[in-house]
Amino acid sequence: MESGQRFSLFRYAAPNVFYPLAGRLAPWFAAAAVGFTLIGLYLGFFVAPTDAVQGEVYRVIFIHVPAAWMSMFIYLIMAFWSAIGVVFNTRLSAMMTQALAPTGAMFCFVALWTGALWGRPTWGAYWVWDARLTSQLLLLFLYFGFMALTRAIEDPRRADKAGAILALVGAVNVPIIYFSVKWWNTLHQGASVSLTKAPSMATTMLMAMLVMALASWAYTIAVVLWRVRSLILERERHTDWVGEVLDAKGAQA
């Protein structure tokens, strides 16, 4: 039984098996992303009550918080796939890592941007050296570094392996960066910029946030599956099965 499971898992790790599977799954996740986004935004913008302290401005958190969560989570998933790639030497895991990076950077950027928009009315400045914002900025640089390194290396196998090492080194450092920035922040800024947290978050607010988190999950999965599909085609273009896929597409057109 166990060997059978192991076998089936590794079977999907083969690019030619994963390619059609990803193609079938991606539209479902895309549809889910659209659905969850509509529901989440409706809940957040129309149903959730106005915040007693911050007024309507606070509603940006329905985008800001899920984006921030996702940007951190994606780096962890990248590190996970990198570890798999280093241990099992699977080609697909490196493609996964590289497909995830742009989406992670995008969420990171969204979190920073919405954070700045939120900060202006709340703190009176677009940017404060808040621990969370600062570590988010550093995370964005980690993403940029990963993407720059994997694109600077021409040989895809070398790019895969170098990217995996960098993602793992980065993942070890992410918590260190976060805690050091937090410590630095408490020493230098004191309590002047603590976030005003509503004493008890309304249930609808929490619901809206969770639905938006689900939406970003579904979006990430859909985009990554599509991106992995094109990476597979690019990498495996000299193999027979990609030739057949491309021929079939040509016949359709």
């Binding site: 550093l138 720059a148 450092n173």
Partner: peptide
Amino acid sequence: ALLVLPLFVP
């Protein structure tokens, strides 16, 4: 520089 400077921050 892009790779290591963020890691040097702590």
